[in-house]
Design a protein around this nucleic acid. Structure first.
Length: 647
DNA sequence: GTTTCGGTTCTTTTT
DNA sequence: GAACCGAAAC
């Protein structure tokens, strides 16, 4: 392995952080200052210093970030880095919990519930306690409440009373439902996303020797996007790093945009208090954007209180000012963007150099239509996630019930596919099976077969052999084959009868089987399904093959990425900032402003801020929108005005 | 009593 | 789309 030229590849700020002696280190990396680069070189530095990759823990928030960092690190120091424990917090927690689930009352084959499963289960709890009614909060609200309580470690009672002050709902009822929900999860052997983190922390809090084991194993802990950690996550880090005290955290409080899921940028603010010998490094030299864009970025974040003062310093040469575009409505905005894309192509940009950012997915509807009309290729970063689509979930539930015979949710979903069986009948069946249904046991299949309504019998005859094959052909290690059999015995016909876009879904199912071939254990596959949320590599390639494509993305999903040209659409008050989130809490405006800052700082060369005046509602009425307050906050000299519709 | 169908309404952000 | 609701069908 060749020595790496750290001095030649990093600037002074980055170098100081990357090669600093082990100890608590906080790197405040403003947007576009080479944060990932610094982290990757830090890893390389450790490895080159003789640290075994197995002793490094690298935590990120997205799978994409983890993948990218490990790839870049392996380019530097070779394939040995694959030994690093790198991935999302949820991945780490899952990996630890699979090993020690017994200590906290779970079996190691617990299922991971996604949002949809959680909703279903919560709804069931509400029903069982006979609380359903017009006035009682919906499952989604209850889940948010519960999540907030967990992630902020506030007592449920006070979260409930905060949120329901003035509403005539008995907080005790809410508390009871949530307690029932917790119990229910334990019974069916399932954890939701929050549980993974909470239970992992619980495990480490209560089992000194297990904690010790991981403390010894992880000599060095590195955390990306530290400003997005919540209380649970920061405590996980603190505990694991307690022995060796080599914690290297990187973040930017300006880019903290996940407080709605419990992230608390006070974690980053208080890092120096919690580690009083912490070294702080600031990265302020921006390599990404032209100075005119940085002016706008610095101006729009300046108003936020409580932050580490950082100013983006430009290294690039002056180019041109960002444009604020005033438009009549969404249609005109869509036409404008498409027109500009054509113009940019004539100037020499490729489609993949361009991104359109927005606050919420539905803001892109008109634009999608217009792009299609103009025959301009585009890709969307996950509106609906691959693994959350109905047909994919159906298939995964088959695997779930095979590996975890207490998984009621999977059982119910699977059997509700049969004609004549709906939610009620599935529940009855489950009760008759006494809350456990081991479909690998022939006697269970016999019993179950006798209970089914007559209507379902024809389908049951098709499906039963699939279960039998699971044992006969030992498909435990080959989940793809099981799914394949199921599709051909039953599900293909079901799709034809159920979905109008059957072909696309059938292709997806095929894709799933191919994807599964990479796994040799069902458990491992299901963990990934729950935590991966996307077959992202495939969608990336699709764009490249067709000669590039414009990317459409929410600002959240664009975090950490950059493009030569950025359009921000629907920069109006109510859309961005979102009226909903502003109404919700005090700190929301500051967070929306940070989100706007993230959007602006994605741009390398050109930035267009689009401000339509009116929005057409479904019923034909129109509503007038004021320009986004974030647009108003930009000093007029920093931008050019354009009014294409009024020429 | 359940399931299924058809019409209507509404879309934040993610592991 | 998909979640919700009411009405028809089984």
């Amino acid at each position: 392995m060749a020595r790496i030229d750290f001095e030649g590849r990093l600037n002074a700020e980055q170098l100081a952080a990357a090669v600093a002696p082990a100890g608590p280190i906080l790197v405040l990396a403003a947007a576009g200052t080479g944060k990932t680069r610094t982290l990757v070189y830090r890893v390389a530095h450790l490895v080159q210093d003789g640290v075994l990759p197995e002793h490094i823990l690298l935590l990120t928030f997205t799978n994409k970030a983890a993948k990218e960092m490990l790839e870049r690190a392996s380019e530097l120091v070779g394939p040995g880095v694959s030994g690093i424990w790198g991935g999302t917090f949820h991945h780490m927690a899952n990996r630890i919990l699979r090993r020690h689930a017994g200590r906290i009352g779970f079996k190691s084959d617990y299922t991971i519930m996604d949002r949809d499963d959680s909703r279903t289960l919560m709804a069931k709890c509400v029903q069982e306690l006979k609380l359903q009614g017009k006035e009682f909060p919906k499952p989604d609200v209850l889940l948010t409440l519960y999540g907030t309580a967990i992630n902020t470690e506030m007592p449920l009672e006070s979260v409930v009373s905060d949120r329901f002050a003035g509403v005539k709902v008995d907080p005790n009822d809410v508390t009871n439902v949530i307690l029932a929900y917790q119990k229910e999860k334990l019974r069916i052997g399932a954890m939701d996303f929050d549980d993974l983190l909470v239970n992992c922390l619980k495990l480490l809090r209560e089992n000194e020797q297990i904690l010790c084991r991981y403390q010894e194993r992880f000599e060095h802990v590195l955390v990306d996007e530290y400003q997005d950690t919540n209380k649970i996550q920061s405590e996980l880090v603190d505990r694991i790093a307690k022995k060796n005290r080599s914690v290297f955290v990187v973040g930017d409080d300006f880019q903290s945009i996940y407080s709605w899921r419990g992230a608390d940028f006070k974690n980053i603010m208080s890092f120096p208090q919690r580690y009083n010998d912490a070294k702080i490094f600031k990265l302020e030299t921006n390599y990404r954007s032209v100075p005119e864009i940085l002016n706008v970025a610095n101006a729009c974040i300046a108003g936020n209180p409580e932050q580490y003062q950082k100013t983006l310093r430009a290294t690039r040469e002056a180019y041109k000012k960002p444009t604020v575009v005033r438009l009549r409505d969404g249609d005109e905005q869509a036409r404008y963007v498409v027109e500009q894309i054509g113009e940019l192509q004539r100037e020499g940009y490729g489609l993949s150099d361009i991104v359109v950012l927005y606050r919420a997915h539905y803001h892109s509807m008109e634009l999608q239509m217009e792009l299609m009309r103009a025959n301009t290729h585009y890709v969307i970063t996950s509106g609906m996630r691959f693994f959350e689509q109905a047909h994919i979930k159906d298939l995964c539930c088959l695997l779930r019930i095979m590996t975890n015979s207490s998984d009621e949710l999977a059982f119910a979903r699977l059997f509700a596919l049969l004609p004549g069986i709906g939610a009620r009948t599935a529940e009855k069946l489950w009760r008759k099976m006494a809350g456990n249904c081991n479909l690998t046991d022939p006697s269970v299949l016999d019993r179950l077969g006798k209970m089914l309504p007559a209507q379902a019998m024809a389908s049951w005859k098709d499906i039963r052999p699939v279960f039998e094959a699971y044992i006969a052909e030992d498909l435990r290690e080959d989940p793809g084959e099981l799914i394949y059999k199921f599709i051909h015995a039953f599900y293909k016909r079901y799709m034809i009868n159920t979905f109008e876009n059957f072909e696309r879904r059938s292709d997806d199912a095929q894709e799933l089987v191919i994807h599964m071939a990479k796994y040799n254990s069902t458990d491992e596959f299901l963990s990934d399904v729950a935590l991966l949320t996307n077959l992202d590599s495939e969608t990336e390639d699709a764009g490249k093959n067709s000669g590039g494509a414009v990317r459409l993305s929410t600002v959240h999903q664009a975090k950490g990425l950059e493009w030569p040209v950025v359009f921000v659409i629907w920069a109006t008050d109510g859309m961005f900032p979102s009226a909903r989130s502003i109404a919700e809490s005090e700190g929301a405006e500051a967070e929306e402003r940070r989100l706007f800052y993230v959007a602006v700082t994605r741009a390398r060369n050109e930035l267009f801020l689009c401000v339509p005046e009116i929005r057409r509602n479904r019923d034909g009425s129109v509503s007038y929108h004021a320009p986004s307050r974030f647009i108003e906050e930009i000093p007029p000299d920093f931008v050019c005005e354009s009014r294409p519709g009024f020429i």
